[in-house]
Design a protein around this nucleic acid. Structure first.
Length: 472
RNA sequence: AGCCCGUUGGUGAAGUGGCUUAACACACUGCGUUCUCAGCGCAGCAUUCACGGGUUCGAACCCCGUACGGGUUACCA
């Protein structure tokens, strides 16, 4: 049987990295077995639907390099792939369960439910629907239906016995049937609940491996009962532990840049994000850490997914991202980094800008960092602190170095890095000064700070005129 | 409150009863290289695997209990 996995997000507008990581696992399992990766949109909650969210999902998957074999944009025979367009299908299967005695109509009002809930709270018990509507006579049901009383369809749970969940990661888990709620399958607006639509679609779409967050683990007992009622074969379940924020708490928007798009907009490469995320809750049997997509597909082993949750740590992401940026060919790097440079370069040549960006290629952790690191080239006036001024006065050789250097720089006709680099050697020879005493005074005079890129690069970028002016 | 799952250094983690006086990577610290930063190289960083008990000649690995953390108990997904 062909392996098929699916990514089934709800279009609520925000994909955090936990969701993305699940998608990565789903994609890798599919591709590892030469199977299909399916995109299904779970928009059964009409109220939470966010306009344009689907486009974000597409954009994210595309950027990450995941090819969708079947989905709303490239439907095959299992379509439609948007749940709101499959309303009739769910209804049909729910009715089938009703006729089999595995589900029933429920006409309970919001108010009745509220009372039951209060009672349960009073006894400090979890709320369970008491099943009163399952005892309604055929005539009563027909009458209610005829009168247009709103209804839902509920799944009828066994009251005794246990249901065993089988999960590839967590093994066998026994759940007592007595704690299972007669969950709603079809809501009063005619839409299915998530749990029901999921089971129906996973079966109809031939999904062989259901990979999802661990928060759904308990629900699986209800799923199994549904599969049994229909007489369908169950998929392999792979529940994956959560990704926590760096503080050990649940990921949230307030917690920082936890969404893929945020990271992308900060200047993290999708390939680096994917590489980082795949190692959150999964590890290969060897020590490899940097993977191409192809290597991931070949090396991924779903059995090695971790049981315990892991914390998102931006420092390691930075490390990956720096590595990936470094490995970019120059042309690609420039294409990537250019949009992040928001400082005004209208008076600079393209060649100058490219040189500037290239100097920092090996130094940068994420795109937006370029502005911070490069700003010394955009200051019109430099200010030398008292402390550095003190250093400049600390040795009598320093003024000599500076004036000699200035003199040699002024003689350069062809302003390029090679020629600039020669100057320092000339000065070294002429003055007999070397090392820190030679370089640092020049660096401080021309930039005002002790740190920066290599001196010839820096001088080249600042420009002859300015350099001469600052060395006065 | 019931039920389910988890717990190896600041972080990701390897480890499935003797090879573990716990690998590797990030971070951190120190040293070296360099005019500086970064990089690179080297070294250091858990006497111990939440805690307590048990099984065993032997336990991070098996069993029981406790603590802590998380999830779940919706006409949300």
């Amino acid at each position: 049987m062909k392996v098929r996995t699916r990514f089934a997000p709800s279009p609520t507008g925000f994909m955090h990295i936990g969701n993305l990581r699940t998608a990565i696992f789903e994609y890798l399992v599919a591709k590892k077995y030469n199977g299909d990766f399916i995109l299904r949109i779970e928009d059964t909650d009409q109220e939470r639907k966010v306009e344009g969210a689907i486009d974000f999902i597409y954009k994210t998957l595309e950027l990450c390099g995941f090819k969708i074999d079947e989905g709303p944009n490239n439907p095959k025979e299992c379509g439609p792939y948007i749940q709101s367009e499959r309303k009739d299908i769910y209804k049909k299967y729910a009715e089938e369960l009703v006729s089999k005695g595995k589900a029933y109509y429920c006409f309970c009002s919001e108010k009745e439910l509220e009372e039951m809930r209060e009672k349960a709270a009073l006894r400090k018990r979890p709320f369970l629907y008491d099943g009163r509507c399952s005892k309604l006579s055929k005539e009563k049901i027909a009458e209610n239906l005829a009168n247009g009383i709103p209804y839902v369809i509920r799944q009828k749970m066994p009251k005794i016995g246990t249901t065993v969940i089988e999960d590839l990661i967590y093994g066998k888990i026994k759940i007592d049937n007595s704690i299972l709620d007669d969950q709603i399958l079809i809501k009063s607006d005619g839409f299915p609940t998530y749990n029901f639509a999921n089971v129906i679609d996973d079966h109809l779409m031939g999904i062989t491996h259901v990979i999802r967050g661990k928060e759904y683990l308990d629900q699986t007992a209800k799923y199994n009962l549904l599969y049994d009622s229909f007489g369908w074969e169950k998929p392999t379940y792979i529940h994956v532990a959560m990704v926590l924020g760096s503080d050990g708490n649940k990921l949230s928007k307030r917690n920082g840049d936890a969404s893929f798009m945020d990271l992308y907009n900060e200047g993290y490469l999708p390939s680096a994000i994917v590489n980082y995320l795949v190692l959150l809750g999964w590890s290969p049997s060897n020590n490899q850490e940097v993977f191409t997509m192809e290597e991931l597909i070949n090396n991924f082993d779903e059995k090695r997914i971790s049981k315990s949750s892991s914390s998102y740590d931006v420092k390691k992401l930075n490390w990956f991202n720096q590595k990936y940026i470094k490995n970019l060919p120059d042309a690609e790097y420039l294409k990537f980094i250019r949009p992040f440079l928001t400082l005004d370069v209208s008076d600079k040549s393209e060649e100058w800008v490219n040189k500037l960006l290239l100097i920092y290629k090996d130094h940068i952790s994420y795109g937006k960092e370029i502005n911070e690191v490069v700003d010394i080239f955009f200051k019109d006036e430099i200010h030398i602190s008292d402390e550095l001024q003190e250093f400049l006065n600390s040795d009598e050789a320093i003024p000599k170095v500076i004036s000699e250097y200035r003199h040699e720089i002024s003689k350069i006709e062809d302003w390029n890095i090679e020629n600039i680099a020669k100057v320092i050697d000339i000065v070294k020879e002429k003055t007999g000064v070397k090392g820190k005493l030679l370089y640092m005074p020049i660096r401080i005079k021309i930039s005002g700070v002790e740190h920066g890129p290599e001196l010839p690069d820096e001088i080249y970028l600042i420009g002859k005129e300015k350099v001469l002016d600052r060395l006065k």
